[in-house]
Design a protein around this nucleic acid. Structure first.
Lengths: 110, 110
DNA sequence: TTGGGCACATACCTTTTGGTTAGAATTATT
DNA sequence: AATAATTCTAACCAAAAGGTATGTGCCCAA
C-alpha cells in the first residue's frame, strides 16, 4: 500500500495553462501589458518604458495583442502620427496574473 | 492642461516582471511546474502528462528548474532508474501565478 | 541472447524568434 | 531646402529554441 492516488491530468487541447500561455507566453507580452496597465499610452512612451525591446518586436507584439483583443489601438489622423494603446476589458483580466508575478519577483528575486 | 501625470516606470534591471519572466518565461516552464504541483512525480509521469514536449526539452527544463531551486530531484539507485521530482518551497511560491493563469484561461479561453 | 523498461545524453538539423539597418509618409520648423 | 518628429514597414541576418533519431547503462524476464 505504498501507492498514493495521484491524479495526473494530462495537458491536452483544453488545458487552461496551455491556452493562457499561448496568448501571454511571448517573451515580451506580459511586460507590455504590465506597462500599459491602466494607462492610455503612446507607442513612443512604450518604447521608452521598455528600453530593451526592439521596435520590430514592439509593433509585432502590439499588432498581435490588438488582434487577440487584449489591447485596443486608437490612431489620430495627425502629423506627426499619434497612436494610443490601452488594455481592453479582456486585457485587464490578465492583470491579476501580473500581480502574482510581481509578488513572486519582489519576494524572491529582486 | 490636457496632460495627465502618467507615472511610467521604465523596466530596467530591477523590474520584478522581468526578473520573474527570466525564471518562469520559458515555453514549458510553467506547464511543468503546474504538472508537478503538490505531487511527487517521476520523469516518465511528466512525459505522459505533457505529451507535446520532447524528451530533450523536458530534461533540459528540469535541469534548469533544479539549478534554479524551483524543483528538487531525487534519484534512487535502482535498476531500472527511478527519479522523483517535486517543487521546492520556492517553486511552490509560483503556484499563485498559475492559479491566476488558470483562472484567466478558464474564464476567457477554453 | 534477445528484448524491454527507465532516465537520460548526444549529434544533427529545422524552425522560430529576435536584432539591425534603412526607409516611408507628411507637415511644421529652421 | 533641409531637418525633426512619430509610427511604423521591409529586408536581411544571427541566435535561440525546438525536434528527431539514436545511443547508453543495467538488470530482469522470456
Amino acid at each position: 500500500m505504498e501507492e498514493k492516488a495521484q491524479k495526473i491530468i494530462p495537458c491536452d487541447k483544453g488545458c487552461p495553462v496551455k491556452a493562457s500561455l499561448g496568448l501571454l507566453g511571448g517573451k515580451w507580452t506580459l511586460m507590455i501589458i504590465f506597462q500599459i496597465n491602466d494607462n492610455v499610452i503612446r507607442y513612443g512612451q512604450l518604447k521608452k518604458a521598455i528600453p530593451d525591446i526592439s521596435e520590430k518586436m514592439l509593433i509585432q507584439e502590439l499588432t498581435m495583442l490588438v488582434k487577440n483583443k487584449l489591447v485596443s489601438r486608437k490612431a489620430y489622423p495627425e502629423i506627426p502620427p499619434k497612436v494610443e494603446y490601452r488594455l481592453t476589458d479582456l486585457g485587464k483580466k490578465t492583470l491579476p496574473v501580473l500581480d502574482k508575478l510581481i509578488e513572486f519577483g519582489l519576494e524572491n528575486l529582486v
